[in-house]
Simulated scan of single mutants.
Amino acid sequence: MREVFTRSCCALGIVLAVLIPMTGAWRSFKVILTDIDFEANDKIVNLTVDLQNDAGDSKLSVDIKVFEDIEDVQLTVDVGLETDKGNYSTLINRTLNFCKLLKLRNSDPLLRGIYEDLLKHGNLFKECPIRRGTFSLSHYKVDEELLPSFLPEAKFRFGLLITRSKNERILRAVVYGRIDKSKGFDNLKRFSMG
């Protein structure tokens, strides 16, 4: 009896070990980027942005030409959810030294994870000072696995401000989008259960 119980527990443990990672790997939402507003300091950088939305997939491509080496880069990130039409409630607002983010692996886990995901889709800055040259991001699609599974269906704003010493603006960008759950697991459950 004890041997049968032990085998059953082992079999259940193996099934759970295999299935639990798979259930956590699927998100019940899509991130759809709807618009990008940006301005770059044309004495320092030239920026070309292309946003494509095909069949519910948003893909972002960016070409960056840096005209001079840039030291002491500050990064300000602002994330907000739309509460009323056109009004956003700020969820995250932080400023950090971009060079420190690149050098120290544990400096900001969330932003570091997002930046490492961006690096997989192009040749972006990997060291400071940022060297003169051409950089790009090609057909980037937001990896929903990096985001918490409990995100609400909502419109959002992602603001980015990049400056250098004496608050000289290099780049300001605002990405607008929405969290879409219409094709997610909850919707599938409703149709299958009647």
Results as ranks from 00 to 15, higher is better:
74 Q>L: 05
70 I>C: 04
112 R>V: 12
106 N>Q: 11
7 R>T: 09
11 A>G: 05
23 T>S: 09
57 D>K: 14
121 H>T: 11
30 K>W: 03
16 L>T: 04
21 P>S: 05
24 G>S: 09
9 C>N: 11
127 E>R: 08
36 I>E: 08
14 I>R: 09
127 E>A: 15
114 I>C: 11
81 L>Q: 12
133 G>A: 08
36 I>R: 09
50 D>F: 04
145 E>A: 10
133 G>T: 07
144 E>H: 04
180 D>T: 07
128 C>W: 01
32 I>H: 10
136 S>R: 13
160 L>D: 01
51 L>S: 03
86 G>H: 10
170 I>A: 03
134 T>P: 09
36 I>G: 10
59 K>I: 11
141 K>P: 04
105 R>N: 12
27 R>H: 06
69 D>I: 00
71 E>Y: 06
174 V>H: 06
5 F>M: 15
99 C>E: 06
151 L>P: 07
150 F>T: 13
43 K>M: 09
92 I>S: 06
20 I>D: 01
40 A>T: 13
145 E>K: 13
149 S>G: 11
14 I>L: 11
161 L>E: 11
134 T>S: 15
150 F>R: 13
159 G>P: 00
95 T>K: 00
63 D>M: 14
112 R>E: 09
56 G>E: 00
192 S>E: 15
16 L>I: 07
111 L>W: 01
181 K>D: 03
169 R>N: 06
106 N>I: 07
162 I>L: 01
93 N>P: 00
53 N>E: 12
109 P>H: 15
145 E>G: 05
77 V>W: 04
186 D>W: 07
7 R>P: 11
191 F>I: 11
59 K>C: 14
34 T>V: 01
106 N>E: 10
111 L>R: 00
9 C>V: 14
157 R>V: 12
20 I>K: 02
68 E>W: 02
26 W>N: 12
13 G>H: 02
106 N>C: 04
139 H>P: 05
98 F>K: 07
71 E>L: 03
108 D>L: 01
101 L>A: 01
173 A>W: 00
163 T>S: 11
194 G>T: 03
55 A>G: 06
189 K>I: 15
104 L>A: 03
127 E>S: 15
44 I>M: 12
8 S>Y: 12
132 R>N: 12
45 V>K: 03
93 N>H: 04
91 L>A: 07
150 F>S: 15
136 S>I: 04
79 V>R: 00
2 R>M: 09
91 L>D: 01
82 E>F: 08
38 F>G: 08
55 A>K: 15
148 P>F: 10
185 F>G: 04
8 S>C: 10
34 T>N: 06
189 K>G: 06
130 I>Y: 05
77 V>C: 04
66 V>P: 02
28 S>D: 08
24 G>M: 12
165 S>K: 10
69 D>K: 00
88 Y>W: 00
21 P>C: 09
3 E>V: 14
187 N>H: 14
24 G>E: 11
12 L>I: 15
37 D>M: 08
3 E>I: 13
19 L>E: 02
156 F>V: 08
43 K>L: 07
174 V>A: 09
98 F>C: 03
133 G>P: 00
118 L>T: 01
168 E>Y: 01
